[in-house]
Design a protein around this nucleic acid. Sequence first.
DNA 1: ACCCAAAATGACAACCCTGTCATAGTAGAT
DNA 2: ATCTACTATGACAGGGTTGTCATTTTGGGT
Lengths: 201, 201
Amino acid sequence: MPKDTFLNLDEAKQRRIFEAAVDEFSQKRFSEASINQVVKNSGISRGSFYQYFKNKEDLYLYVLKQIGKEKLDLMNYAGEIKQDADFFDGFIYMIRAALEWSRTKPKYYRIGMLMEFDDSHFISELRKALPEGFSMLKGMIEKDIQLGRVRSDIDSGLVVDIIYTLNLHLLIHCFKTDEESEFLKKIDEIIKILKEGIVNR
Amino acid sequence: MPKDTFLNLDEAKQRRIFEAAVDEFSQKRFSEASINQVVKNSGISRGSFYQYFKNKEDLYLYVLKQIGKEKLDLMNYAGEIKQDADFFDGFIYMIRAALEWSRTKPKYYRIGMLMEFDDSHFISELRKALPEGFSMLKGMIEKDIQLGRVRSDIDSGLVVDIIYTLNLHLLIHCFKTDEESEFLKKIDEIIKILKEGIVNR
DNA sequence: ACCCAAAATGACAACCCTGTCATAGTAGAT
DNA sequence: ATCTACTATGACAGGGTTGTCATTTTGGGT
């Protein structure tokens, strides 16, 4: 979506702008993020920016697309291993992969998280169009139901929703406090509860 | 926290301002909410506003305090019934009470929800100082553990966290789509999963 | 060395916002 | 009727934002 003028730039400059944008969008929600900041931190002029991108939305979409490329590589790699695992192991594997990614590329991860809590029109619409990261989990639960590993009256969609929500919530906490081992411990415990329930028997 | 000049106003005018503030704070996060809007919708002048309140934070705290009063009444009422109920019933009761409140005072509820997703310094600090609505649930789980109704290896804090997070998540969805019966169905299902787990046995 | 098209620039308009302040208005007491 | 103390007002300063545009700079081809 950037204009040709941007694509014609030498790669170093493209990266400088991209990274300035990542910096900004990982600190502020889309609506609060400022082009001025991106312009300042990438050392280009305001006028140039609007020669490269149509507007702020254009820049955001570009950043997302770039991040998506890197994420896709990682997810494809993760996808190879968990073929015959059950849902629980598959989930834990995905969590660890995601955590690894969030550790190597924390800013990318933060952008995703901020997006999650952005209720602006633009972001709401955008979110709908984006691929759901945990969607594969739904298939895994359904497989487990067919194999008799999971109760047949369980709503797979709801379970994915639960997992997705709790994971996001814990991740945010993890980011704030930087207690990664605590996070993994809690995920394990949540999985256990999800498996067995909390009732004494 | 408002100035005396505000308290001296006749009640109708106080309400007008309060309601304009509620309108604004239930539509926009604190940082995005605009005094201009409040001023316009309450029909007072900008200058007057700053004669009534020190600043935006002052107004916000006032609104929260007013809402807190109403909420306290409701919660005290709800607290009377669930004395000897177990955690699950207690939780469902609380959910229904909260939902009832969100139905009668949706704007108040929205303010709370927006606060939940506000990471500004002011709101973060404020949130810490506020009483935790679900804190009583923790005690109920611990009681259930002692009574042998819940496994003793369960972390009560984590369970409350799970419940709190999922509830909030579902409520937001409920607010957006206005599917209240769907919401209650899901809560019931989540409780069931929390109780029994999803594993086939 | 010259030319010209493409790229870079920052001033600018137009619109937000918050908090202040000198002025104008009002209503009660003397 | 006058004085006074409180209240209301909107213009203003000073800050932010986005997107535009006339102007200058640059660099490749001749």
